[in-house]
Simulated assay, not measured.
Amino acid sequence: MPTNRAMFAEVVNAVRDHTALMLGTTISYSEEDWAAPTGLSGWTRSHVAAHLADGADAMFRVIKGLEDGAPIRMYDSAKAKHRAIELGALTSPLDLQIRLDTSASALQREFAALEGDTRPVTLRAGYRIPANQIPLARLGEVVLHHMDLGSHFTTADLTPDIAVELLAFNVERIGRRDDYPPLLLVADEGFEGSVGRAGSPTRMHGPAGDLVAWLVRGTESGRIYRSGDAGA
């Protein structure tokens, strides 16, 4: 149900803008702030930042592999990914901030060449998308992890078209996975989509950004109504 869908250039610009917002949050962190826990089990803010920097570097490699005709995945293995995050989290606050900035900037410069490129890329096992959706995948990472840091940033800071784009992307990515119950997600902005295993779906109605946070992170919101809820 297409409405308020963002164009490729809007998504690319949103990655830049939301990365800048996140960097504006992290630049103020003290060493103690970096060591604070996040909403992700076992991860400090340093772990989140290391993961985002690693992710930018890995997406950069994927794009370069595409250009060279030698497709690669973002990470060699889950073990290698985990080890890189643990090592990256030990980086000094200043070096971590610099790495966050420089890795994101290098990746941002590569996005323009992906417009209209529908060649499939496998970012990791079970995560296969057209190349022109790489910026959208990055945007989702930046937005969700900015919230994981425990900042004042929320889904209300997303424009309606970007929120819808992220919801549509995650609905398509999750698809009919058996580990999700049957759900019908109905966004206030006019998008709706189904995910989860077969069966009678629970209807979730609310702002697209809130639905994304709930779908991917389980973040509850007073603006989401379920089937049978008052006001649904």
Rank of each mutant, 00 (worst) to 15 (best):
D179E: 14
Y75M: 11
W214D: 04
Y127I: 11
G231W: 11
Y75W: 13
W214N: 07
V142R: 02
L114S: 08
H146G: 01
R99F: 00
G140S: 11
W214P: 00
M147K: 11
H82Y: 01
F191Q: 03
R177E: 13
T102L: 09
R223Y: 02
A163Q: 09
F169A: 04
G190E: 09
T3K: 12
T118R: 14
L107S: 03
N132Y: 11
E220T: 10
L183E: 07
Q97K: 12
T155G: 07
T155M: 13
A163G: 09
D33Q: 13
G190L: 08
H205N: 08
P160A: 07
T3S: 13
A112T: 12
R217H: 07
L66C: 06
R173H: 05
H146Q: 14
D101I: 01
F111E: 04
R83V: 05
P120I: 09
A106I: 07
W34E: 06
R173Y: 01
E141I: 09
L94P: 00
G231P: 11
D148K: 08
G222Y: 03
R109G: 01
G218V: 07
T155I: 08
L100K: 01
A131Q: 04
D101R: 15
A106F: 06
W214S: 05
K81M: 08
T155P: 01
T102E: 10
E220D: 12
V142G: 02
R83M: 03
E189Q: 08
D161T: 12
